[in-house]
Design a protein around this nucleic acid. Structure first.
Lengths: 144, 144
DNA sequence: AAAGATTGAGTCTTCAATCTTT
DNA sequence: AAAGATTGAAGACTCAATCTTT
């Protein structure tokens, strides 16, 4: 049985705690402003980026690392308030083409007004990125 | 409005993705082995560490960054299968003293047999911690 | 009133099964 | 059969209100 070294354990524990704390502060900021949760932002942003092409649910799943049923229900909620729309796919009868509505674009912008500064205060202000390696670079190693 | 710099955004996005991916692989390992989720491990470990003293729910909440009601319901589930026990507090009628049972100790050990190697393969093997700064050190800055 | 803890109701997530199209 | 997507039922989380003790 291969156990983790102390430094690995420390990294893991800190990853969990940091994520929990930072995410909570960002989600709180959105909630306090009466805005939807972060997951909605991710969806809206991806749809905005793929404007024209018409992205499909299974592509979003892969990008956002969500299970199929999770994406299905997330889209349900976002569609219900008319921030996105679902149309049947032309070339594939199983699928849908997702698109963002005008209201969706506005919502994403409104969210960013809160979201952006929240990231800045929870992450940006805490880091002196110039000295030495970048944190994001190190974190990316965990994705390989 | 103070927006985040590109490097801050990259760090944030990578923190989210890395956490999601690594946590999923560890939780999957536990589930595949028919073991309880990670949150249970944290509770069992803290109770084991505080053995003798008798820790209280509100202390656990602070350590594990959970809301009060979240802790209450988590303890309900763990108690239901007799891995911990709750007794009324001697000196404070509002509170409880938590303790881990023999079964709880066994369970924590069993979980570690899966959990430990899972951390090692998801984190330990991906990092070359010797070169330059440690990742956990950088992540800790986000908690200040 | 504040601190510690719980709870009903509503929302979200998860599991497993399902359905349709490829 | 595999891929894309959905759904009922069960479990977990959240909000707000509650209860007891300090």
């Amino acid at each position: 049985m291969i156990l983790p070294e102390p430094s690995t354990k420390r990294t893991w524990v800190t990853l969990l705690r940091t994520h929990r704390q930072v995410l909570a502060s960002v989600e709180d900021a959105l909630k306090s402003a009466g805005l939807p949760p972060l997951a909605w932002y991710d969806v809206l942003l991806e749809l905005e980026r793929s404007k024209g092409q018409g992205i499909r649910p299974f592509e979003l799943q892969k990008k956002l690392l969500l299970p199929q049923y999770g994406m299905s229900r997330l889209l349900d909620r976002i569609e219900k308030v008319a921030l996105i729309s679902r149309k049947p796919c032309d070339d594939d009868g199983r699928g849908q083409q997702l698109s963002i509505t005008k209201r969706g674009v506005d919502m994403r912008k409104n969210m960013w007004r809160i979201y952006g500064p929240a990231i800045q205060s929870a992450v940006g202000e805490k880091l002196s990125l110039t000295e030495g390696k970048e944190l994001s670079e190190l974190l990316e190693k965990l994705q390989e």
